[in-house]
């Protein structure tokens, strides 16, 4: 087994063998959390996106604006006119008015029990589903519905959704930035640790060269060291990260469920977090190898 191989360069007694795993653990911890946050946010954005695809909301105001000519018509008649207009529109699959109870349920978190009272001047809401491929053009639909009942508004949620997706993208960018910074810090640390190791063990490395070792042989010694430290640190960091995420998910589930949309990860997404310590180990190994080869090549 590689981990049990004889160590020609006694790196495991260096100070680096003690502190590097913890440093890597900390970095992997940060990267794991950042990545999990990015994944969760993109899950939410996607859920909103697909949930709202093909859906429009039409608002019919409770009473027409004073300028409009159709004063006197009741709300019910106005809503029926809009519903008729909608159902005649090609590409509209269905159009249903939200019932009083549904409206009350939606408003309750903001208005409390008053939401149920019938004398609040609420607009009527119509949920419209369209066939995405044949969706009616928004501006002309808006004009037609305004003719049916003045003041009617069509909302395809794109503005809200766009802003949400923007937030999600910013968070993802931030996560990438965190991962990149942490990765760069890891590379610099491993370069430093490797150079230190090369100078601490200069005599041993000289001897290896004197008896015919290629630079790659020496590099392998450092690579194996980096592999051991990287894996140890990476797994510690991942374990701490997973524990944090699990605690967070539980807290979100219990306390904040109503306010924050679900921030949970799917099973493959949990697995993809495994890639973080593995990537860290790979980066550490490659960095150690390149550092050794470049340093030794300068010697001749």
């Amino acid at each position: 087994m590689i981990l049990a191989r004889q160590r020609d360069v006694p790196l495991d007694k260096d100070a680096s063998a003690r502190f590097l795993p913890w440093l890597i653990a900390f970095m992997v911890y940060l990267a794991t959390l950042a990545l999990a946050a990015a994944i969760a946010v993109s899950n939410v954005a996607q859920a909103w996106d697909s949930g709202l695809a093909g859906k429009l909301t039409v608002q019919v105001p409770p009473s027409p604006p004073p300028s409009a000519g159709d004063s006197g018509r009741g709300q019910t008649a106005r809503v029926d006119a809009v519903l008729d207009a909608l159902r005649e529109t090609p590409g509209v699959r269905s159009a249903e008015q939200l019932s009083q109870q549904e409206m009350a349920r939606l408003l309750e978190p903001w208005l409390g029990a008053a939401a149920g009272s019938a004398d609040l001047p609420l607009p009527a809401l119509i949920a419209v589903e369209v066939v995405p491929a044949r969706a009616p053009e928004l501006a002309s639909l808006q004009r037609r519905l305004d003719r049916a009942a003045a003041g009617t508004r069509v909302d395809d949620h794109q503005r809200t959704l766009g802003r949400l997706l923007e937030v999600a993208r910013t968070l993802q960018l931030l996560a990438v930035l965190v991962v990149a910074l942490v990765g760069a810090a890891a590379v610099v640390t491993v370069v430093f640790v490797t150079r230190t190791g090369l100078s601490i063990h200069r005599n041993v490395i000289e001897l290896l060269h004197l008896i015919g070792a290629q630079d790659a042989y020496v590099a392998r010694q450092f690579q194996r060291h980096a592999l051991r430290l990287g894996l140890t640190g990476g797994l510690i960091g991942l374990a701490l990260g997973a524990a944090t995420l699990w605690a967070l998910a539980r807290w979100v589930g219990q306390e904040a469920g109503a306010v924050v949309p679900e921030l949970t990860l799917s099973q493959p997404q949990w697995l993809s977090l495994l890639a973080v310590p593995l990537a860290a180990t790979l980066v550490a190994m490659l960095t150690a190898r390149i550092t050794v080869l470049r340093t030794l090549a300068r010697l001749s």
Partner: peptide, 29 residues
Amino acid sequence: TRADKALMRRRIGVVFQDFRLLDHLSARE
């Protein structure tokens, strides 16, 4: 080249005046 030298040194056995043994390895190793 450096690589050539390594290969050539494998054909040369050296007893160093100061031995240069690796202290963390056994005699056998």
